[in-house]
Design a protein around this nucleic acid. Structure first.
Length: 268
DNA sequence: TATCTTGTTAATCG
DNA sequence: ACGATTAACAAGAT
């Protein structure tokens, strides 16, 4: 589940381990994950040296000598730095560096690996329309984004054009910490609740980042984070007691997504 | 076998 | 125009 904490950590790792390496060749096993024809992709990348990597929501953006390499892990996958001849079993795109290392990209569903030509980043639709990073907001900015908005709070928070980085895994605990039911209308939320929500996003994401993000995702070197199921409060804990009031945690349908809630702490 | 899932976009309906 | 809902898409695990 790559959400903001995972992407944040991958970006940090890419800065530490990939920056300065020069691309010798590129191979694509799944052309559908590209935004341009395979030839364009390979030609665009070849010969470039990798600069700093930043993140925006669930996108990783790596500056190249000319242009940018963008990766979105979709619903999961691995970014691995390996030796040329020790490739992982599954990979969709491999970027071979001149020094014998390879950046191997794999998704298990719906990922993207894009090449953006110099100066064209603003034209990259998928990343250009993202809202601000959820962790970069101040309390006031968060209030401003919520002000006057309609609809349900959960769909609002999951909509990457409002604020970027929250997905359907961390959101269970984010809403629980704030004591807010996922189906609450935004218009019924008081200032105090909105502020609690703001704090919950920070708390939740920062806790995970401190631990190197999710246990069930591999980091660049093949290791794992330490944020695991034991760190979850209500997410994926159907039938278990709420950590606050001991009521039974429920798994409920909220629109097209599933939510885990405490029915006593998060009333509609 | 059938169903579930961490994401995103487009289409559709009211 | 907006919000809600559904389907669809590149898999893999249970």
């Amino acid at each position: 589940m790559p959400e903001l904490p995972e992407i944040f950590c991958r970006a940090r790792e890419m800065n530490e381990y990939l920056t300065g390496r020069t691309i010798a060749s590129v191979e694509v096993k799944q052309p559908k994950c590209l935004n341009v024809p395979v030839e364009t992709f390979m030609e665009g990348l070849r010969g470039n040296t990798l600069g700093p990597t930043t993140y925006h929501g669930k996108w990783l953006l790596t500056e190249l000598t000319q242009g940018h390499l963008l990766v979105n892990l979709g619903m999961g996958g691995e970014l691995l730095l390996v030796d040329h001849d020790v490739m992982p079993e599954k990979w969709r795109v491999r970027i071979d560096f001149c020094d014998g290392k390879t950046f191997a990209v794999n998704f298990w569903w719906f990922g993207s690996t894009h090449y953006v030509a110099p100066g064209a980043l603003a034209q990259h639709q998928q990343s250009a329309k993202l809202g601000p990073n959820a962790l970069d907001l101040t309390a006031d900015q968060f209030q401003a984004i919520l002000a006057g908005r309609r609809g349900r709070i959960k769909s609002f928070l999951l909509d990457q054009s409002n604020l970027a980085g929250i997905g359907n895994a961390y959101i269970h605990d984010i809403l629980f910490r704030a004591g807010i039911h996922p189906s609450r209308s935004i218009s019924t939320l008081g200032d105090r609740e909105r502020h609690e929500l703001f704090l919950s996003i920070r708390t939740e994401f920062e806790r995970s980042i401190e631990k190197g993000a999710a246990q069930y995702e591999l980091n660049l070197l093949g290791g794992r984070g330490e944020f695991g199921v034991a760190d979850l409060l209500v997410g994926y804990r159907e039938g278990k007691p709420c950590p606050t009031c001991a009521a039974e945690i429920l798994k409920v349908k909220t629109g097209s997504t599933t939510s885990y809630i405490c029915p006593k702490c998060q009333v509609l």
